[in-house]
């Protein structure tokens, strides 16, 4: 993919020459730390499952704030015309932006690993499920990022991109509720399979099932394909 490294470096730099990434990462660290501490001190014995649960919800809230600018800002700022006339392909543009999002996601999750320190100091945590849980939350966040990237490719306005992403994520989170409707019939199993809220329960316990990996991998792939095709369609 011609130009991928250049585009990735530019994208990552863009996050850090503006306050976006620092603010989002700092807020995520503060919020996840607060929830972990509150849970440990006032609610129950400290464990990472509830921390991962809170992180998942925080990611659903905050990831659209990071993804909203990816392509919508290029479009509204007229730089999309520059990108699409440089000798780089649409797939390289999308992949570079997506990889930069994953770097931000990793940084968000990296700060939360501080929570493991008190667990190690005052207990004997099982690191296997913790590592699995982090992989699971990363997979969930990566899927959110792909949905956000696809939404941003469709919007010319960043706020619209964020709202569209939240709408899609909420739909995919609560889609299994439709299984409770009369007449859902054979669709019940399918609705539960595609629901983020059902799939993530195994992930935050550190259980990476093949079905979950395939489902979240599919969401990521579809998100990137949609974003690439929307960019190609912009040329039409």
């Amino acid at each position: 993919m011609r130009g991928f490294v250049t585009l990735f470096a530019r994208e990552l730099r863009h996050y850090f020459v503006t306050p976006i990434a620092c603010v989002v990462i700092a807020v995520f660290w503060a919020a996840s730390g607060f929830f972990f501490s509150f849970n440990a001190l006032f609610v129950a014995a400290p464990d990472m499952v509830s921390a991962f649960h809170n992180m998942s919800l925080l990611l659903m809230l905050m990831m659209p704030l990071v993804t909203m600018r990816t392509l919508a800002e290029e479009r509204s700022g007229d730089t999309l015309e520059l990108l699409l006339t440089l000798p780089v392909g649409e797939a390289a543009i999308v992949a570079a932006k997506y990889l930069a999002l994953l770097v931000i996601l990793v940084l968000m999750l990296a700060g939360s690993t501080l929570a493991v320190i008190p667990l190690a100091l005052y207990g004997t945590p099982d690191y296997g499920p913790i590592l699995g849980g982090y992989l699971g939350v990363f997979l969930l966040g990566a899927a959110f990022a792909a949905v956000g990237l696809a939404a941003s490719s469709c919007a010319a306005n960043q706020v619209v991109a964020a709202v569209l992403t939240w709408a899609l994520l909420l739909l995919m989170w609560f889609v299994d509720y439709a299984a409770a409707l009369d007449g859902a019939g054979g669709a019940v199993r399918w609705l539960q399979h595609v629901s983020f809220s059902v799939q993530y329960l195994d992930l935050i316990r550190g259980v990476l099932t093949r079905g979950a990996v395939v489902w979240f991998g599919s969401v990521i792939a579809v998100g990137m394909v949609v974003a690439t095709q929307v960019l190609r369609a912009r040329r039409a």
């Binding site: 730099r13 730089t79 015309e81 520059l82 000798p87």
Partner: peptide
């Protein structure tokens, strides 16, 4: 293009360096 495509947060040097790199 008619509306000059610039990345406002970048310096002039960084922007031109990016375009040069993207041109291979």
């Amino acid at each position: 293009p008619e509306r000059v495509p610039l990345y406002d947060p970048f310096t002039v040097g960084e922007y031109l360096d990016f375009v040069a790199a993207a041109r291979g």
